[in-house]
Design a protein around this nucleic acid. Structure first.
Length: 500
RNA sequence: GGGCUCGUAGCUCAGUCAGGCAGAGCGGUGGGCUCUUAACCCAUUCGCCAAGGGUUCAAAUCCCUUCGAGCCCGCCA
C-alpha cells in the first residue's frame, strides 16, 4: 500500500495502539440471542474482526472469541413471540423451547443462523456459550469472590452508577430448581467451603445449590469477571455501555479492584439505522437480519459496509441503495476493501448495474446469459455472475426503487398512442436501418442519425423507443439495451409502434 | 437533569488525536470520428470546513460559547 500522508484505517490505528501492551490479544464479542440477530449486531462482530485482522497483519498474536449469552433470561414476551411464551419469561434462554420447534432451544434458534452467517462472512471466532461456561464451573472462583466481596461491589455500583443498591442485592442470580426462573430468586447465604448458595424464590421454593451451573453473575459483574476468566484484552461494545456510570465504568472498577485484572481496550461503536425506520432493535422487530442482507449482496460487500466506517460514526443503511454500495465496493482499492475480503470473494466481470438491467430483460437463466452476450460481454466468470445474479434478483424483489425497475412489454403497450408522427417515423426508420451485424454502440449511433433525419431531438426518439418497448419514458442506455434484446422481437416491436 | 457521538462539496464521507496551501468517491458537467437517456474510458466542476469568539506566525484541526442532528443514562449493540 502507498504510505505518504494517506490516512490509516481505524482498525490499524487500534492495532497500533494496542500492539505493544501485551504478548497476545484476545478480542471478545458477545450478543444475547433473545431475538433475530441483525446487521446492527453484526457491527459488533465485524468491528472486532476488523481489529483482529489488523492485529494479525501487524504480526501480533491474536484470537477472536464470541460469547453467546445463552444464560440470560427472557425479559418479556417480544412482539414476535406467541403469547404463551409468558410462562417462560425469567427463564434462561438455553432452557426455553425453540419458537420453530426444530432447534435445541430458544437461544440456538437465533444463534445458529447467526453463526452460519459468520462463516459466510469469513469470521471464525472461538464460540462460547455462557451456560456452558457456567456449567463447566469456569465461573465458580469468580462467583465465590463476588459473593465474599458483595459489599465492596455494591459500593462500587452505587458510587459509579449512582444507583441505590437494595439491601438484599446479591451479585449472583440463582436458577430456581422448582420454577426454572433466574429473575425471581434471592440469595440468602452461601457456604465458602462447599461452594453452595442458599436461596428463596418468589414461587415459594427455598433451597441450597452448588454455585456451579446453577446461576450466573448479574450482568455488570459477569462482564468484569468474564474479562479475567477468558483473558479479554480488547472488546467492542455499543455506546449504551459506554455512557458515564455505565457498565464499562463499573466493569473497569470491579475488574481492577475485585479481580485484579486490567479491563480490555474499549472500542465503542454507534448504531446502524435503517433508512426511514430508525435504530435497529431485536425487541421491537425493526430488523434486517444478516441472512436477509446476504441474499441481496455478497458477503465481502456486507463486510465493506461496516468496515469502511469508523466505529463511532453511525451508519444510515438504505437497502434501496445497495447497487451504489456494490459499485463502490467494486471500485474501492484501499485498506477497507482489503479488510473486507472473504475466502470466497469473487472478482466481478460485469458491473452490478448491468446485471440488474440484463436480468430484467431475460426471462430465464439461459436467456440471461444470452442477453449478456448480446450486450457485448463475451467472456465472464460464470460463478461470480451467478452469485450476483441471485443477489440482484432478490434485491429487485425486495428493495429496488421503482425508478430502476422496468419490464419489457410482451405486447405493444397502449401508451404508444401518445407518440407523435415524427416519433413513429423515427421508429420505422430505425427498424429499417437495423441489420444483423450492428453492435450495441452502432445502434446507439443509429438513434442519433435517425433522429436528425426525421428532424426531432435525440431525446424524443429515445423516449419513443422506451415507450414502445417498456411502456415508459426512460430506461437503460438505449443502444446497449436494444442490442441485448432479441433482434427479431426488437424489429417487430419498432415497426408495430411506428405504424399508425 | 447528567453524558456521549456527529456536523467538511448536491450525496456518502476522509482529514481533527500529533495545527502548516481544504481532499476522495459518487453525482453533475464536458468530451470519447454529427452521439443527454442506467455499460465503459478520459477530463472537469463543486466548499462561509454548522455559527460566533479565543489561542497562534499559522486553526477544519487546540480552547470557550451557541445552534443543529442522533443517541445513551431502567441488561435492546
Amino acid at each position: 500500500m502507498s504510505e505518504m500522508d494517506e490516512s490509516r484505517h481505524w482498525a490499524d490505528v487500534i492495532a497500533e495502539n494496542v500492539a505493544a501492551t501485551r504478548e497476545k490479544h484476545i478480542i471478545a464479542t458477545g450478543i444475547t440471542p433473545s431475538g433475530s440477530i441483525h446487521i446492527g449486531n453484526l457491527r459488533e462482530v465485524l468491528t472486532a474482526d476488523g481489529a483482529y485482522r489488523a492485529l494479525c497483519d501487524a504480526g501480533v498474536d491474536a484470537e477472536l472469541i464470541y460469547i453467546g449469552d445463552t444464560f440470560d433470561p427472557l425479559r418479556k414476551v417480544y412482539p414476535f413471540l406467541p403469547d404463551d411464551y409468558a410462562e417462560h419469561v425469567g427463564k434462561p434462554l438455553y432452557a426455553i423451547p425453540c419458537p420453530c420447534g426444530n432447534c435445541a432451544n430458544y437461544a440456538e434458534h437465533y444463534l445458529m443462523p447467526f453463526l452460519e452467517s459468520l462463516k459466510e462472512l469469513d469470521i471464525a471466532p472461538t464460540v462460547y456459550r455462557a451456560h456452558e461456561l457456567y456449567g463447566n464451573g469456569d465461573f465458580v472462583p469468580a462467583t465465590m469472590k463476588a459473593l465474599r466481596n458483595r459489599d465492596k461491589i455494591a459500593a462500587i455500583l452505587e458510587e459509579v452508577s449512582k444507583r441505590a443498591i437494595p439491601a438484599d442485592w446479591s451479585p449472583f442470580n440463582v436458577l430456581c430448581e422448582s420454577c426454572g426462573r433466574i429473575t425471581t430468586t434471592q440469595v440468602t447465604g452461601f457456604d465458602e467451603r462447599r461452594e453452595t448458595v442458599d436461596y428463596t424464590c418468589d414461587c415459594g421454593y427455598a433451597g441450597t445449590v452448588p454455585v456451579k451451573g446453577n446461576g450466573k453473575l448479574t450482568w455488570r459483574v459477569d462482564w468484569a469477571a468474564r474479562w479475567g476468566i477468558l483473558g479479554v484484552t480488547i472488546e467492542p461494545f455499543g455506546k449504551d455501555h459506554a455512557t458515564r456510570g455505565g457498565s464499562y465504568d463499573t466493569g473497569t472498577r470491579i475488574s481492577r479492584e475485585i479481580y485484579g485484572y486490567e479491563p480490555p481496550y474499549p472500542i465503542i461503536y454507534e448504531w446502524i439505522h435503517l433508512k426511514g425506520k430508525g435504530a435497529m432493535s431485536s425487541s421491537t422487530g425493526v430488523t434486517v437480519t444478516i441472512s436477509d442482507m446476504l441474499r441481496v449482496m455478497p458477503p465481502e460487500v456486507l463486510r465493506y459496509l461496516i468496515i469502511k466506517t469508523k466505529p463511532e460514526k453511525h451508519i444510515d443503511f438504505d437497502p434501496s441503495r445497495i447497487v451504489e454500495l456494490i459499485d463502490e465496493y467494486d471500485r474501492a482499492t484501499g485498506r477497507a476493501r482489503e479488510l473486507s475480503q472473504t475466502e470466497t470473494s469473487l472478482r466481478s466481470d460485469i458491473p452490478f448495474t448491468h446485471i440488474v438491467t440484463a436480468l430484467q430483460i431475460a426471462s430465464d437463466p439461459d436467456g440471461f446469459q444470452e442477453v449478456l452476450r448480446r450486450s457485448g460481454y463475451a467472456a465472464f466468470d460464470m460463478e461470480s455472475v451467478q452469485r450476483r445474479m441471485e443477489n440482484a434478483l432478490n434485491w429487485l424483489a425486495l428493495y429496488a426503487p421503482e425508478s430502476v425497475k422496468f419490464e419489457v412489454q410482451e405486447t405493444l403497450p397502449p401508451v404508444v398512442e401518445s407518440l407523435t408522427p415524427e416519433q413513429r417515423r423515427g421508429l420505422l426508420l430505425l427498424a429499417s436501418g437495423i441489420s444483423d451485424d450492428l453492435t450495441a454502440s452502432d445502434l446507439h449511433d443509429l438513434v442519433y442519425e435517425v433522429s436528425e433525419e426525421v428532424g426531432i431531438s435525440g431525446s424524443k426518439l429515445f423516449q419513443a423507443i422506451y415507450i414502445a418497448i417498456l411502456g415508459k419514458k426512460s430506461g437503460p442506455r438505449a443502444g446497449y439495451f436494444m442490442a441485448s434484446l432479441d433482434r427479431e422481437f426488437l424489429l417487430k416491436r419498432l415497426r408495430e409502434a411506428g405504424r399508425e
